[in-house]
Design a protein around this nucleic acid. Structure first.
Length: 362
DNA sequence: GGATCCTTCTTCTTCTTC
């Protein structure tokens, strides 16, 4: 078989001006002088009918059966050792990333109540004709030291998330330079902020019945067009950019919006994205963020109603239709459990940091 | 007035053929 394979390689190399032949997991890869690395079937198809070469008179049928013969023996001819050697040849040595292999925590969190056992009920209806609430965060008064949802999520990212984020950042800096990357990040943030304030202004003006049209700069025009079909299904806006606080669990956050979406009361989070996010899994920690806000809102005495559902709306700058990911109460409960684990992780980290700082002082 | 806080984003392999 090895003699047969060698003869095959030599013939093909002559036919297609091959520079390099590599066999990876039973698939023969050919690097031609005029073509990028391609697998044999592609190369063969490109070469035989269209390309005129001194070898065009060769019997292509004969070689195609030879390929089938080579491919058919791929399982028996390979061992873990040869696979490793081939991987090393093609991809280079494996460089282990610094990713601690901590297994995800599987233990059940202790508090699971925010959507099922809240004192409030969905029957408690506030007059929906009233203007939306906007509780402004005031850190100065009351001396609240509660950490925010964003901070907790940022500081409890999984090792995998941290790894991919850092890799992305490193690549971006390589491409744009330090200053270019800073500028790029600032632009993303400012676009997001502007988009949020425009949506807020639009919802406020429509909820209060004022005719004032919100300022719609060309910078966010595409985003607004993107969410237009979602806004058609939004009604009874109850809160906009409003602070929610969980006194028992001691954290706070600012909800983008609380409103009815297709008749269901939801915590709504508006997002901008450069990449399409058609699936909920594309939104990373966003569902946890929404569940954390809803849990806080249900515990917060400033809000007399309960919210069991969530909505993440991902808007696109080019105006293509936004993706609206609705979270059922069951999903919200699942994400709430994840949130509690993240919160606990944050608390443990913080107490460790505090004790370390104290011992360093002494 | 300055410092700090809450947000705003960023991640998941990548290519081919039909």
């Amino acid at each position: 078989m090895s003699y047969c394979f060698h003869a095959f390689c030599v013939t093909v190399a002559r036919m297609f001006l091959v520079k390099r032949v590599v066999c990876v997991r039973g698939i023969v890869w050919l690097q031609c002088t005029s073509l990028p690395l391609r697998n044999f079937s592609a190369c063969h198809r490109l070469g035989s009918p269209k390309r005129r070469s001194p070898y065009s008179s060769e019997d292509s049928e004969r070689y195609s059966s030879l390929v089938r013969s080579v491919a058919s023996c791929r399982v028996s001819s390979q061992t873990p050792e040869t696979l490793r050697a081939e991987d090393e040849l093609v991809y280079g040595r494996v460089v282990k990333a610094a990713m601690p292999s901590t297994k995800p925590q599987t233990r059940e969190p202790t508090r699971l109540h925010p959507f099922s056992l809240s004192q409030k009920t969905t029957d408690t209806q506030e007059p929906e004709s009233e203007p939306p609430v906007r509780i402004v965060l005031n850190r100065g008064q009351g001396g609240s030291s509660a950490p925010s949802v964003t901070r907790i999520l940022q500081q409890t990212l999984s090792p995998e998330q941290t790894f991919y984020l850092e890799r992305w950042k490193r690549r971006m800096i390589e491409e744009l330079g330090e200053d270019g990357f800073k500028e790029y990040s600032q632009k993303l943030f400012s676009q997001g902020k502007l988009f949020h304030s425009t949506v807020d202004a639009l919802l406020t003006s429509s909820a209060t019945g004022t005719d004032e049209h919100p300022l719609c700069l060309s910078e966010v025009q595409g985003y607004m067009e993107s969410i237009s079909h979602v806004l058609e299904d939004v009604s009874a806006v109850r809160a906009i950019e409003s602070t929610v606080k969980h006194d028992t669990l001691n954290y706070l956050g600012i909800v983008d919006c609380v409103a009815r979406y297709r008749g269901v009361l939801c915590v709504i989070d508006w997002k901008t994205s450069e990449k399409p996010k058609p699936f909920l899994s594309n939104t990373y920690d966003n569902p946890i963020q929404v569940a954390a806000y809803a849990g806080a809102l249900n515990d917060d005495g400033n809000y007399k109603y309960q919210v069991d559902h969530g909505l993440i709306v991902v808007a696109y700058k080019d105006g293509s239709p936004a993706h609206a990911h609705q979270l059922s109460s069951e999903l919200m409960l699942q994400y709430w459990k994840t949130w509690l684990l993240r919160l606990e992780k944050f608390t443990v980290q913080r107490s460790c940091d505090t004790s370390t700082a104290l011992s360093e002082k002494r």
